[in-house]
């Protein structure tokens, strides 16, 4: 399959470069839109006088809560990521290495898969009522719990793949030596599944960061996250596209940084997890 002819090399690079262009175009377009006035955007001007107005209005207008939304998103996405990693790793280890009867394994996995496939909006109303009745509505903890639950099936599935990679003999040997479960987890399992943790963690972070309908139902002003802040620019009569673009540009920054720093790690973790 590896022909080294010049033509095929050129073809490959052309295909890649073209696809990259198609992928990147809308991003450049959003960033540019953030610096345009609404009318320049609507008229589709390629040459325009850049303006900071949209960024100013997103960051400093007294009606905008973008910075707080941003802080909330950071808290929600990172806390739910940590929680989901802990819960899923423990559960996956328990299910695959601690000899549960197979019906436990299968019913839990089946339930999590079914839940994962149902649109989250179906449960959002029930969650609101539950949280409200125990005073957890309009708290970040409520949203964190909801996101942890939403991402748990995916995490359970991915961590399951990695845990099954941990040789049983290794676990047994460690147990023979008198290591208890926490020690086995820390010294035997964790080092092996680290790439899995990275991949799962980053995916749950991103899914939590982007999640819209559940936060829309659960949050109020103090607890709203970035997608809600962005959603506000779609008003009842018109859409403030340029401010939306500015807010979007800002909201993509953390994920983009994450990507630049950990790109290698993400792909390796993702693929070694999903492609086995």
């Amino acid at each position: 399959m590896h022909s080294d002819s010049l033509i095929s090399t050129i073809t490959r690079h052309t295909v890649l470069a073209l696809s990259a262009l198609i992928v990147i175009f809308p991003f450049l377009w959003i960033v540019a839109a953030g610096f345009k006035t609404q009318i320049d955007l609507l008229l589709g001007k390629f040459l325009f006088v850049p303006t900071w107005r949209n960024f100013e209005s997103v960051l400093f207008n007294s009606g905008s809560d973008f910075l707080r939304n941003f802080a909330n998103s950071v808290i929600v996405a990172s806390t739910s990521m940590v929680l989901v990693l802990v819960v899923a790793t423990l559960a996956a280890y328990s299910l695959y290495r601690l000899r549960w009867p197979s019906w436990v394994l299968h019913s839990l996995l089946a339930w999590s898969l079914v839940f994962h496939m149902v649109p989250p909006i179906t449960l959002a109303g029930a969650w609101f009522t539950m949280f409200r009745s125990i005073g957890m509505d309009n708290t970040l903890s409520g949203i964190i719990l909801a996101h942890t639950t939403l991402n748990l099936p995916m995490a359970l599935w991915m961590m399951g793949v990695f845990i099954r990679d941990v040789p049983t003999e290794l676990v047994d040997a460690a147990s023979m030596d008198g290591a208890r479960t926490p020690q086995v987890l820390r010294h035997v399992v964790l080092p092996i599944v680290r790439p899995g943790l990275a991949a799962t963690g980053i995916l749950s972070f991103i899914f939590s960061w982007n999640e819209f309908p559940v936060v829309l139902t659960l949050a109020q002003r103090q607890t709203a996250t970035v997608p809600i802040g962005i959603g506000k620019y779609a008003q009842d009569n018109t859409v403030a596209f340029t401010e939306m673009a500015a807010a979007s540009t800002l909201s993509m920054l953390p994920a983009f940084l994450l990507l630049l720093i950990a790109q290698r790690f993400i792909v390796r973790g993702l693929t070694s997890g999903a492609v086995k």
Binding site: G63, F128, R132, L216, T217, R221, I228, G231, K232, A234
Partner: peptide, 20 residues
């Protein structure tokens, strides 16, 4: 305080509020 919401979902929010 003004609790400003996206147009989507603001009706639902008001309903939730008066019913609790």
């Amino acid at each position: 305080n003004l609790d400003v919401n996206p147009f989507a979902g603001s009706l639902e929010k008001q309903r939730h509020a008066v019913r609790t």
